[in-house]
Design a protein around this nucleic acid. Structure first.
Lengths: 188, 188, 188, 188
DNA sequence: TATGAATGAGGATTCATTCAT
DNA sequence: AATGAATGAATCCTCATTCAT
C-alpha cells in the first residue's frame, strides 16, 4: 500500500534497484531487487505499489540526482561560458563516477513503463541547466530554435560523450572538452 | 519438393515484428508477432531460431535500411557540404516517414539481446556516412578527435532531431536544417 | 512471520508425483502433479527447483522407503538365513502393497534425469541389505565375486519376482519363497 | 501411411533410431532420427504411422535380433548345459558388442508406448531360449514354478550381468561365467 | 513418393502481486 | 509492518503430425 515506515529501507531498495537494473536491465525480478536490498519481496510492495511505480520513482530520483550534481557549486558570478562549462563537466563527472546510476537511467529512459508525467518531472529537474542554455544561445545562431530542441540536442551529446569517456577513460577529460567546445560552436 | 521456405513469409514476420515492437516494445510475445504476420507461432521458429535471433536480424536489417535510405542517390559530384546535407535529410526523412521502423530500432538499440557482432554489422552499414563525416571534418576544429566519437555525436543529434520532428511535424523541415547547420558549425 | 513452508505440502506433492508418475510415466506434466497435490503449478516450484529436482528427491525417498520397509523389525538375533528371508519378504511385501511407489520407482530408475549422485544415495540406503548379503555369501560359491554384482543380481531378481507376484497375486507368497530359495542356492 | 517403397530406407531409420535412442532416450525427436537416417522428417511417417509405431517395431526387431544372436549356431547335439551356456554367452556377447542396441532396448522395455502385443511378440522370439530353460529345470528344484517366472528371472539376471560386464570389461568373461553358474545352481 | 514447411497444442518455468501469519 | 509462501497468467520454445509441392 505504499506506506513506507522506514526511509532507510526505501532508499535501500532504490540503491539495490540501481545496482540490479544496471547489471540485469529492466527485466530484473523485483525479488532480486528486494534481496539485494536486504528486504523481503513482499516488503518491496509496501514501499512501491507496483514495479512500474518503483521504476518511475527511480527515474525521477536519478534525474534529480544528476541535475543536482551538475548544478552543484555553480559559480553564478562567472561568465556564462564558465558556468556552462562547470555544469557540463560536473554532469559528465557524475555519469562517469556513478556508472551504475547512469546505466540504470539509460535503461529507464527507453522504458515504456516511464510515464510522460515522470519524464516531465525529469525535465523540470533540469530547469537550471535549461536556464543556462537559454542564456548561452541568446545571441547565437540558434536563438530562434525551440529551447526544448536545444536541450534535447545537448542531452543527446552528453550521452554520446559519456559513452565515449567510459570506453576510453584515459582521454576522458579531453573528450569532455572536445564535446563542450563543439556544443559552444553549435549554440553561441 | 516441399513447400519452399518463402521469403515473403520471412519478411512478413520482420514487418510484423517492426509493427509490434514499435507499439509494445521488446517484451512483445513472439505469438503476437506471428499472428500479426499471419503465421503460426511455431512457424516463426522455422525462420528464426530464437526470439533473440529475430531481434538481431531485425536490428541489422533496419540499420541497413536506414543507411541505404540515407545514401540513396548521393550526389557524389557535389561538394562535401551538399553531400552531407543530402545524407542528413534523407536520414531524417527515412526516420520520420517510417516512424515504426525508427521506434523499433530505438528499442533494439538498447536491448541486451543485440550482440556486439550485430552492433558491429550495424556500424559497418553506416560506413558510407562515416566516410563523408571524415572528409567533412578534415580541416575543422574536430580534426583530431576520434572519428568514432564524431559519428556517435552526429548519431545522437540525429536521434534528438528526429524526436523533435516527429513531435512537431509542421516545422520538421526547419528543425532538420537547424540541426544540420548546428552540426556543420560543430565539425567544419 | 509468513506462512511457513509446509512439510505437508511437500509430501502432498511427493505423493501426487508417485500417483501421477505411476499412471502416466515421467512425461506427466508438472501441472498435473500440482493439481493432484491440490497446489498451484507455481507452488510446485517453491518446493522443487525443477522437475528433475523433484524426480531426484522422489527417487531417493522411494529407495529409502523401500529399504526401511525391508529392514524394519529385522530379527538381528536370528541366523543369517532367517534375517535374509525377513528382508526379502518385507521387500517384496512393500512392493506389492505399494504398487504405485514401485511403478514410479521403476520409471525413475531408468530416467536420464536421475543423477549418479542420487543413484549412489539410493544404493547407500540399501547398505543394510548389502551387509546381509555379504555375510550370506561369505562361504558360498560366489564368495569371490564383486559384492556389487551380487547386489545387482538380487535386485534384478526382486524386480522380476515382484512383477510376477503382481500379475499372479493368488500365488504371491509361493513365488516369493520360490525366488528366495533360488537366491539362496545361488549364493550360499 | 506406412507404405514403404525402399526397405533400405526403413532399416536406415531403424538403425538411426537405435543410435539416437541409445544416446538421447525415447524423448528424442523423430526429426533427429530422420536426419540421422538421411531421410526427411516427413518421410519417416511414410514408413511408420506414428512414433509409437516405430518404437514398437524397433522393440520387436531388437528382441528378435537378440534371440537370433543367442541361438545362432546352437550345438543341438551337445548336452543341455552346454547348449544353455552357449545361449547365455552369445546373449551377453550380443549385448556387450552392440551396446547401443542393448541401451535402446532397455529404454524401450520400460516405455508405455510398447503395447502388450509387442511385448508378447518379443517373448515369442525368445521361445527357443524358453525351450532350453524348460528342459534345464526339468528335474531341478524349480520344476514346479511357472516357466514364465523362470524366464523372467533369467532375463533379469542377464540384464544385471550385462551391466556389470559393460562397467568392468576387463573381467567380462569371468562375470559371464559367474552368473551362468549361479543360474545353473538356481534351476538344476 | 519424397520433401520439409506449417501447424498448434503442450509444457516447464518465471514473476508481479496477493495474502495468511 | 514485515515476511515469504501461494498464485496462475504469461511466455518461449518443442515436436508429432499434416499437407502443399
Amino acid at each position: 500500500m505504499a506506506r513506507p515506515r522506514s526511509e532507510d529501507k526505501r532508499s535501500a531498495i532504490m540503491s539495490a534497484a540501481i545496482h540490479v537494473i544496471a547489471s540485469q536491465g529492466l527485466g530484473a525480478p523485483t525479488a532480486t531487487i528486494a534481496k539485494e536490498a536486504g528486504v523481503s519481496n513482499g516488503s518491496l510492495f509496501n514501499y512501491f505499489e507496483t514495479k512500474a511505480d518503483l521504476l518511475n520513482q527511480l527515474y525521477i530520483e536519478l534525474k534529480a540526482d544528476m541535475a543536482a550534481a551538475a548544478l552543484d557549486e555553480l559559480p553564478s558570478e562567472s561568465n556564462i561560458r564558465k558556468q556552462m562549462l562547470h555544469v557540463w563537466s560536473h554532469w559528465l563527472l557524475w555519469a562517469t563516477s556513478c556508472p551504475e546510476k547512469r546505466r540504470a537511467l539509460v535503461h529507464l529512459g527507453v522504458s515504456d513503463d516511464i510515464t510522460s508525467d515522470s519524464r516531465q518531472t525529469g525535465r523540470d529537474a533540469l530547469a537550471g541547466i535549461t536556464k543556462l542554455l537559454e542564456r548561452s544561445r541568446e545571441n547565437g545562431p540558434m536563438r530562434n530554435a525551440p529551447l526544448g530542441f536545444i536541450v534535447s540536442m545537448v542531452d543527446a551529446l552528453a550521452d554520446a560523450t559519456i559513452d565515449y569517456m567510459i570506453n576510453d577513460p584515459a582521454n576522458a577529460d579531453k573528450h569532455c572538452m572536445v564535446a563542450f567546445n563543439a556544443i559552444w560552436r553549435m549554440i553561441v
